[in-house]
Write a protein that binds this DNA or RNA. Structure first.
Lengths: 338, 338
DNA sequence: CGTAACAAATGAAACGATTCAAAGACGAGT
DNA sequence: ACTCGTCTTTGAATCGTTTCATTTGTTACG
C-alpha cells in the first residue's frame, strides 16, 4: 500500500510507454509538448519519485563522491567538507562524509562502503598507509584524491597546504617585529606539525642572533596549551621567549589564557603570540590572535576539481596542488613598537 | 577494462550458480564448506565488491538514514550527528548528513534527494514548515523523526530538549547563589531561545524580590556578546545586574571577554555568568564557564531508536521524547560566598 | 498519389543483485 | 532396489530505471 509509484505506473496512468516517461525526465526535448504535459500531470498525481538505486544500477556509477576526514568536529575539516559539498553540488554530485576518527579500521570500513556504493571518486585525509588500497581503487576506475597530504603523483592527485611555508611565515613575522628568542609549541611527532617547525627553523636560521626552542606540548588542546603557558610564566623574565609560535590555535589560546590570567606578562608587549589555522575563535580571543590561515575552501573546491580532471583523463594523469597559507596579523603580534 | 567483477563473473570463475555466490554472501550456513571456500577464493582473486545499487533495488530499501541539520559547523549538531552515526552503525545502517544552512530550499533539496535514495528514514531539524511534507513521507512509508523540535505525536516522533527547563535551571542556579537582579542575553525571536527565557522568568517569579531584564543580543556570536558586555560595563555599578544568563556559550564568552578585559568587573564576584550548550570552549575559558549541557549523544542515539521503532510498528505510532538538560557549575558562578 | 525526411513514441534488453521453487545429491532405513 | 528426508545447488524471475533500434505518425514535395 505504501509503496511508491514506479515509472511503469506513471506510464500506465498517462497512457504512454515507459521509455517516454524516462525521456520526459531525462530528455524533455525529445518529447512533444502534449505528452510531456500529460506525463508530468501523472507524475504529480501519483507522487512519483525516481528510484535512484535503479538509475545507478543502469548507469553503472553513482552521482556520489566519498570524503573521509580525520575528524568532522575539527573546524578545518568541516570547512573543507563544506566547500567540497558546494563544489560537488555545482557538478550535480553529492558528497558523503565519513569520519575515520584517526582510526585505520574505521577508515577501511568507509573505503569498503564507498566502493560498494560505486562512488565517482574518493577524497581522503589518510590516517593509515593507504597507498596499496589507492592502487587497487585506481585499477578499478575509482579516482582518489589525497587531502591535506602530499601525494606521489605517480599514484594519485592531492591537495595540500605548504606547512613548512606556514611555519616560515609565522616565524618570519615574529622576527620582523623585532623578536629574537622564539619558542615553538606543538607535538612534532605529527607530520604537519613537524613541517611547520622545520619552516620556522628555516626562518630563524636566516637571521643572525635569532633562536628558537621547542616545547613539546604533548597534546593539541587548550588545556595542554595552558600548561605550557604556566611553565613560561614561572621562568624568570630574562629566560622567557620574546615570542611564541603555537602549532595550532587551540594551543595558542591556552597559552594566552595562562599569560593573561596571571597578569605578569603582557601580550604582545612582553611575549608576542601566534597560532595556526585561524579558527573562528582566534579573532574573538581576549587579545585577538594572529594566526596562519589555511585556504580550506580552496582545498575542498580543488579536491573536487582534481577528481573531475581524473574522471576526464581516465585517471591516467595526476596532479599535486599545494596551497600557500596566509599570515593573518592581529593584536597578539601587533606593532614592532614598544 | 576497469569494470568491477559482478556476481556472475564470480559464479563463472568458481564454477557455481549465481544463487550460490549470493548465498555465500548472505546465508553462509546454507552453503557447504567446500564450495564456500572456492567461492571466497574467486571473490578474492577477482576483487569482487558488491554493487550496493543492485542490492538496494532488489531490496526496495536502502540501508541509509538521512539526517538534515541546520549547520554542521555547530558543535551541537556535529555531536548529535556523530551519536546518530554510531547508533546507526550498530544497526548496520549508514547516516547521510545534509546541511540545510537554515535555508528552506536547501532543506527541500535534501528531502528530495533522500527520497530518491529511498532512505530507511529521515531525521530532521526543520527550518521551514515541513508538516505537510512529513505527512507525504509517512504515506510513502518513510518514517521521520524531528530533532531538537517538539512534534505533534499525531504526525511523527521527535527528540528534543526541554529548553524551558534549561532556562529554569540556569536562572534557579543564579538565584540559589544569592543573586537577585538577573539579565538574560539572547535573541528571543528564535523559538529555542524564547523557551529558555520563559523558563528563566518562571524561576525568577518564584523568588520574591528577584527580577530579570532581557537584553536582545541581535546575534548569537562571541562578537555580539562582547557588545552586550561592553554596555554592561558602561553602566554604573548599582545598575548592573548581579548575574547574567546567556542563551548560548558564544554569547557568554563574548560577555566574559569584555568584562575581564576592562577589569572593572570581576567574575563571579561582581557578576556571575552562565551560558548554554556547554561547548568545549566553556571549560577552557579564562574563567571556566558554567553552562547548561544538552544531552547531544542521547539525542542522536534516541532519534535512531525512534526511527527503528517506527519501522517496527509500521509508522503507526509516534513518540515525543523530551530530554532534560543538565546544569554544569564552574568557576563563573562559583560559591555563594563573597 | 507516392515517398522521402523527420519527429515522436515504443518496448525489449540490459544493469547486478536477491529470492525461491524446483532439482539434484546422498544416506539411512526397510 | 526403493523410498524418504535432509542438505546443497540451481537458474529463472524480479526490482525500476535507461538506452536504443524500431515502428508509427506527420509533413512536404515532386
Amino acid at each position: 500500500m505504501s509503496t511508491t509509484a514506479s515509472i511503469k505506473d506513471v506510464a500506465n496512468h498517462a497512457q504512454v510507454a515507459v521509455g517516454t516517461v524516462s525521456n520526459v525526465l531525462n530528455y524533455p526535448d525529445r518529447v512533444s509538448q502534449r505528452t510531456k504535459e500529460r506525463v508530468l500531470k501523472s507524475i504529480a498525481e501519483l507522487g512519483f519519485v525516481r528510484n535512484d538505486a535503479a538509475r545507478q544500477l543502469r548507469a553503472g556509477q553513482s552521482r556520489t563522491i566519498g570524503l573521509i576526514v580525520l575528524d568532522v568536529g575539527n573546524p578545518f575539516f568541516s570547512s573543507v567538507a563544506r566547500a567540497a559539498e558546494d563544489a560537488a553540488t555545482a557538478l550535480g554530485s553529492v558528497v558523503l562524509v565519513g569520519d575515520s576518527g584517526q582510526d585505520a579500521s574505521r577508515e577501511a570500513h568507509y573505503m569498503d562502503l564507498f566502493q560498494e556504493q560505486r562512488v565517482q571518486g574518493l577524497l581522503i585525509s589518510p590516517v593509515g598507509d593507504v597507498g596499496q588500497r589507492i592502487d587497487t581503487l585506481r585499477e578499478r576506475g575509482v579516482p582518489t584524491v589525497l587531502v591535506d597530504e602530499l601525494a606521489d603523483t605517480e599514484r594519485c592527485s592531492s591537495v595540500s597546504v605548504d606547512d613548512q611555508e606556514g611555519g616560515y611565515l609565522a616565524a618570519k613575522h615574529l622576527l620582523d617585529i623585532g623578536r629574537r628568542r622564539l619558542a615553538f609549541v606543538g607535538t612534532p611527532s605529527i607530520r604537519q606539525v613537524a613541517s611547520r617547525l622545520k619552516g620556522a627553523q628555516r626562518a630563524v636560521a636566516e637571521v643572525s642572533g635569532a633562536s628558537i626552542e621547542v616545547l613539546d606540548s604533548e597534546g593539541q588542546t587548550v588545556l595542554t596549551g595552558r600548561k605550557v603557558g604556566n611553565s613560561l610564566v614561572e621562568r624568570s623574565p630574562e629566560k622567557r621567549p620574546e615570542a611564541v609560535f603555537c602549532s595550532n590555535d587551540l594551543l595558542a589560546l591556552g597559552v594566552m589564557q595562562s599569560l593573561t590570567m596571571l597578569r605578569t606578562v603582557r601580550i604582545p608587549e612582553d611575549i608576542a603570540l601566534i597560532g595556526y589555522d585561524d579558527i573562528d575563535f582566534a579573532i574573538s580571543a581576549v587579545v585577538p590572535l594572529s594566526s596562519i590561515r589555511q585556504p580550506t575552501e580552496a582545498l575542498g573546491r580543488t579536491a573536487i576539481e582534481l577528481l573531475a580532471e581524473e574522471h576526464d583523463n581516465g585517471g591516467t594523469k595526476h596532479r599535486a596542488v599545494v596551497f600557500t597559507p596566509e599570515l593573518v596579523v592581529r593584536q597578539s603580534t601587533a606593532g614592532s613598537g614598544s
